[in-house]
């Protein structure tokens, strides 16, 4: 039998974007196929919302009101931020696994960019899961936790947009941070610290406007509010300007992180090619 078959490529350098799109789709498909994972993640989501809905409902109303908040806003805020956090399980370690398993070399012998390829796959996975959880929240939060959706329906498209941006930013932070794995098995520890920073400075349970002023200022100097607060803020009684500011912050951080990724990626490849990690 002959395997002579001239193949391949229509031109010498086919568009690389096809590979990235395929990686993204692969990620989406994996999330959709992993039903056990989705069910058990939903279980965490339900438990969390139950626990915190009781907490929020038992906070003194007048103290919440100082920030103009009602328990329903808080419940929806948490429902949004947890979409992001639960949508990225092990968000800070996926990239590190690839490094730790010595798979970098495999990706290096491909025609496309190693980091963008892995990130596209991660984005596919996490955006799909986050959006699934968001869809779920639209049904279960009003039903189970008696908190009607505090925004008009047409604004949901904006929420979806910020969720996508949040996932993109979170994975970017995670991927850049996980590059420390090259120097040794530290990425788990770095991942812990990063995720706790995201919780605290991003405002996982409570919006950043709830924080003391000096912490607010500090928080907004980091990318973390763009991951969580920017999504949750849609559900708070704030002006459109505040929401727009959050969105612009996301765009700004996206640009900064993409630049950082470009530099870190270049540096990482040079390092790997020199030392053969």
């Amino acid at each position: 039998m002959s395997l002579e078959l001239t193949l391949c490529t229509k031109n010498a350098h086919p568009p690389l974007s096809k590979g990235y799109v395929a990686a993204f789709k692969m990620g989406c498909r994996q999330t959709l196929h992993d039903r056990v994972d989705f069910v058990s993640t939903t279980m965490i989501y339900l438990v969390l919302l139950y626990i915190f809905s009781t907490i929020f409902r038992h906070m003194p109303l007048h103290e919440l009101n100082v920030a103009g908040l009602r328990p329903e806003n808080m419940i929806w805020y948490l429902a949004m931020t947890e979409c992001i956090m639960l949508g990225s399980p092990g968000g800070y370690t996926f990239g590190a696994h690839i490094i730790a398993q010595g798979r970098l070399s495999e990706f290096l012998t491909r025609p496309n960019s190693l980091s963008i390829f892995i990130l596209c796959w991660l984005w596919g996975r996490t955006i799909t899961l986050s959006l699934l959880l968001f869809l779920l929240s639209l049904v279960i939060v009003p039903l189970l936790y008696q908190a009607p959706l505090p925004i008009e329906l047409w604004k949901i498209s904006f929420v979806v947009m910020t969720i996508v941006l949040s996932c993109v930013i979170l994975q970017l932070i995670g991927f850049i941070a996980s590059m420390v794995e090259i120097f040794g098995p530290f990425s788990t520890q770095v991942g812990w610290m990063m995720s706790k920073m995201t919780f605290v400075l991003g405002g996982l349970y409570f919006p950043v406007i709830f924080f003391p002023l000096h912490i607010q200022h500090f928080a907004f100097l980091t990318p973390f509010p763009s991951v969580l607060n920017a999504v949750g803020v849609h559900m708070l009684p704030v002006t459109d300007v505040t929401i727009l500011c959050g969105f612009l912050m996301q765009i700004l951080w996206l640009a900064i992180l993409l630049t950082a990724l470009y530099i870190a990626n270049k540096w990482m490849i040079r390092y790997v090619m020199k030392t053969g990690v």
């Binding site: 906070m59 103290e63 100082v66 920030a67 920073m197 919780f199 605290v200 924080f211 003391p212």
Partner: peptide
């Protein structure tokens, strides 16, 4: 300790939860 800060931050604004 970092995680615990979430609660200290919250109790700086809220006196008690039930």
């Amino acid at each position: 300790l970092l995680f615990f800060q979430m609660w200290t931050i919250m109790f700086s604004r809220i006196s008690n939860i039930n």
